[in-house]
Design a protein around this nucleic acid. Structure first.
Lengths: 151, 151
DNA sequence: GCAAATTACTTAACATGTGTAATATATCTC
DNA sequence: GAGATATATTACACATGTTAAGTAATTTGC
């Protein structure tokens, strides 16, 4: 009989717990600004771009599903945090950018977010955290490769 | 002006992406057995216990909220995957254990899960993965400590 | 140049989950 | 026994995942 590995040895559970613990630090900040995690992911992604992006790009960079993103964009647009137009060369494409208000919100959240991040680095160790980040990226990259056939 | 750290440097995003990548490997397995991630977390937690547990214990071990757990238990109970009684010594306490069917389901999923896990270890390196798990546990542990006051 | 296929995005519908608050019900404390 | 506390469930409002269908714009093949 195959023994199932314990909770502690489960990679998905370890990742979930670590993320939960990290988000617990950030969630109050987002709540103060009436933002869900996903809404913040979108605003953050937009803030990272120097030029307006289309919805497909956002789907990729935020790891959200297209229907979820549509709803979130509608919400952010209602709140006037983003501007939406359509590409002149391809009118199917939505072109999205931070509005002035949206940019101001990102600018307001950023320093608080960095403060929290600095706390985490002090507690866990900056170098150690940097190394962990690298490992997480590598792990995600190898997992995105198809599983090799067993020889 | 505070520059927001890029997506790549964000710990929550890195954890989310890594978890997504990992779950992508496991999700088809769960789907074949008509289980959501959370339902599986509960069954797995129950499978790990040698004795029946109460709902509060499950809340802790699965990182689910009590109301979510209640609904999930109702669902699993409808599907006869768990048995629920109440403690004779304290009738507020729900006493939950895997049913015979539930144990059979866990036993059916376990070997497939281990196969997937072994693939991940082959791709990423077993030692490296073990070390990463340790770091994730440590990170979660330090994050669960209250943030120290800045000196 | 036009019908058919494709692409990009949106909308709908449904199930599930989160988060907070309110509600039994049982137990404990005085 | 009255009131406080603990355990679990229920209720509600909302966000998200997922699948499917819909709309409009563009490209392709003839």
């Amino acid at each position: 009989m195959t023994e199932l590995r314990s909770f502690d040895e489960s990679l998905p559970m370890a990742l979930l717990n670590a993320r939960e613990a990290a988000m617990a630090r950030f969630r109050p900040l987002l709540a103060r600004h009436d933002l869900t995690e996903q809404q913040w992911r979108v605003l953050r992604a937009l803030g990272a771009e120097s030029t307006p992006v289309d919805a497909g790009t956002l789907v990729d960079s935020t790891s959200l599903q297209a229907p979820s993103l549509s709803r979130i964009l509608a919400n952010l647009s209602d709140r006037q945090l983003i501007d939406r137009t359509s590409s002149s060369s391809d009118q199917r494409r939505a072109v999205i950018s931070l509005s002035e208000q949206g940019a101001a919100l990102v600018a307001a959240v950023a320093p608080e977010s960095e403060t929290i991040y600095a706390q985490i680095e002090r507690q866990f160790g900056g170098d150690r955290l940097g190394h962990l980040l690298g490992e997480l990226h590598d792990l995600a990259a190898s997992l995105e490769q198809p599983a090799p056939e067993r020889q």
